[in-house]
Design a protein around this nucleic acid. Structure first.
Lengths: 184, 184
DNA sequence: TCTAACATGTAAAACGTTACATGATTTC
DNA sequence: GAAATCATGTAACGTTTTACATGTTAGA
């Protein structure tokens, strides 16, 4: 149930409407905790009923602005430091690797090379974001945003290195097989 | 819909019952694509109805052995090389980092230090597995299993390094705040 | 005036987890 | 004979995705 905590986290920076939260999810949280419009409005209703958020203002077009309550804040802090993070990271990218012996070595290598390319692309995007984000915001906010960004940079760099290494190992297997065949 | 592909992948190594698949999921695939008994039996029913697998033998205690069909194999290969992997990796671990400014620096540092410890623990476990697994199995199988394991090792190493680096940055912030306070 | 952006909500389907329910066979 | 393991299945519930549905306001 991290969706509600993501929402409480965003609201802890100031009041916002469902629509505002949706935009923030699309822009900032898309790669960490994607959420859809349906989910957000439904969850806002629940949070409100449970007293973790409260409507503080109504604007044009039925806009409702929500504010985090003290209970909401307590729940957020509880989750941050007392609930241990979920360790299972489902990865269909890695799942494929387990079964790559079902296709020929060339196709397997192609798969790994595409992974490497994608990692490079993502890494570059993150570097772009870092350039853009430098300065502005208070100390702590900037620090944790930067720490999160650094994880993205390290993860994508590690993925690139690994995928390139793996593709090379598959290429070596191809060579070996080719040599073996012609030698027969 | 990767569950079915995980199952097809396992069945491509030879026929198995739902119970067999469950054991394999628990042992080998737990950290990549966890699945429960309910899910497996339900999905076997669907796969069977769609002709991707077929019952080839019935044993004691109502045991049904399933075999992958040619259609199943085709679907597996299609998924392996033609369906692009899902890039969104939901991470409540990283989500927390975004909101760490809501707790004091000491608690934030504690969170990051626990992440580092956990990464070390996971890394050690994977090293243990590598020791144990060396040799046995055919060329390609061993290669891809080893490539997957290597990813786990690199990922956990990167997480340890990052979490330690992040904890140090937070510690620096604590120092700075402390110095600032006493200077006033 | 038209279009884009703002703004909220509901419904159905797919996927995933936990719990319930039952029974057969092997092993000690 | 009791306990562990083998073996399958269903039900209830919670989360996530996709699609439907509607209406307002600001700006070109």
């Amino acid at each position: 149930m991290s969706l509600r905590h993501a929402m409480l986290g965003l609201l802890s920076a100031g009041p916002a409407s469902g629509y505002d939260l949706l935009k923030t999810f699309e822009i900032s949280l898309a790669s960490v905790w994607p959420a859809t419009q349906s989910q957000l409005y439904a969850e806002l209703g629940r949070l409100s009923k449970e007293g973790l958020v409260r409507v503080v203002a109504e604007g044009p077009r039925g806009r409702k602005e929500y504010e985090i309550t003290e209970e909401g804040h307590a729940e957020l802090r509880h989750w941050l430091v007392e609930v241990s993070p979920n360790q299972t990271r489902r990865s269909d990218m890695l799942l494929r690797v387990f079964f790559l012996d079902q296709v020929d070595a060339e196709a397997a290598r192609g798969y790994l090379e595409r992974l490497a390319e994608r990692a490079v692309h993502e890494h570059d995007q993150l570097r772009g974001i870092r350039e853009f984000v430098i300065s502005e915001g208070d100390d702590a906010l900037r620090l944790y945003g930067d720490i999160a960004l650094e994880w993205g940079l390290r993860l994508t760099a590690a993925q690139r290195d690994w995928a390139e290494w793996a593709a090379a190992r598959v290429a070596a297997l191809e060579q070996q097989k080719a040599g073996h065949t012609t030698a027969e």
